[in-house]
């Protein structure tokens, strides 16, 4: 069963004023449980507004959202706070939401709000802290003494500790160096492997999403452009580039090769796969490639 399903989801800002703007237009979507989804789109394409619908922070102007088969705005049968524990949302620059005296207390804020008992909270805090690479000594420190990357990971752990069925991250790697970026992406993947939860990762960098997600959702001008398996999406590299998004460098190399007349597939987006494809090609017609 789909963990998140939307029907004709539409959201309009400042309705009825001159500043009216539709941020999300008529989105029908079904996200299966356990999926690793990358959400991409240019700035202002509506991707941030879309994900805020999934945990009930934004109420749609029209349309419906079902989480785990339940209409989240059906006020009789559903408490919106329970939905927030089911669908964890990590905002952009989450380190700016940290407020407690110690790292431990900050990570336990979410689980505490869920009304869990001390023992369970302690287990969750220690487990998630270990997962994101926060040591026991650091748990007792003030979060404001940590480095930027560490603060970011503490904030992400704060949402992971609620053990949501769906974890949504809005540009978790923004402003980090490549090493910090890879670390966070690896930890998110590790979390997914361990818990089997559904992950939605928002980014405007295809490079981030390419090696990470099994499916990709593309938003363009407030509308859902496509939601397909990663290889399918990369076949549309040209259209995606036209939207103002960049495809990974390696995909561009293969597109260029094709333009030069090399008969090679273009849905290549990771380095390993690129090597494999090239090797196969060279084995098949080793002489041709030298002529190019």
């Amino acid at each position: 069963m789909a963990i998140i399903r939307t029907e004709g989801l539409t959201y309009t800002y400042s309705q009825g004023t001159p500043f009216e703007k539709t941020a999300v237009k008529n989105v029908d979507l079904e996200i299966e449980e356990g999926e690793l989804v990358g959400i991409i789109g240019h700035t202002g394409s509506g991707k941030s507004t879309l994900i805020q619908h999934f945990n009930g922070l934004v109420k749609p102007t029209s349309g419906k959202i079902y989480v785990d088969g339940q209409d989240i705005w059906d006020e009789k049968n559903c408490r919106i706070r329970d939905i927030r524990f089911k669908v964890g949302l990590v905002f952009q620059y989450p380190e700016y939401q940290i407020f407690e005296e110690t790292v431990y207390k900050d990570i336990s804020f979410g689980p505490k709000n869920m009304g869990l008992d001390e023992k369970e909270i302690d287990r969750r805090v220690r487990e998630t802290a270990a997962l994101v690479g926060i040591t026991d000594a650091q748990l007792q420190k003030s979060p404001f003494e940590l480095s930027g990357g560490q603060k970011r990971r503490v904030a992400i752990a704060g949402v992971m500790a609620m053990e949501p069925k769906v974890l949504i991250l809005d540009e978790p790697t923004a402003g980090l160096d490549p090493k910090g970026r890879d670390l966070i992406l690896a930890q998110i993947k590790e979390y997914q492997k361990r818990t089997g939860s559904t992950i939605l990762l928002v980014s405007h960098s295809m490079e981030d999403v390419a090696g990470f997600a099994s499916k990709i959702l593309v938003m363009n001008k407030s509308e859902l452009y496509c939601y397909e398996d990663t290889p399918q999406v990369f076949k549309k590299a040209d259209e995606i580039t036209a939207m103002g998004l960049s495809v990974p460098q390696i995909t561009r190399v293969f597109g260029r090769l094709r333009q030069m007349g090399v008969d090679i597939r273009t849905d290549v987006y990771t380095l390993d796969f690129a090597v494999k494809t090239l090797m196969e090609y060279m084995e098949k017609n080793g002489k041709d490639i030298e002529q190019c």
């Binding site: 927030r84 524990f85 407020f99």
Partner: peptide, 29 residues
Amino acid sequence: MSAQKARGADMDSGGLLKRAAALVPILIP
């Protein structure tokens, strides 16, 4: 406010004291 609500912060219920305490996670950041 949105970020703390996503972590289950409850700002709309409870007595005066509870509501004042609920402001801490917003005011400090």
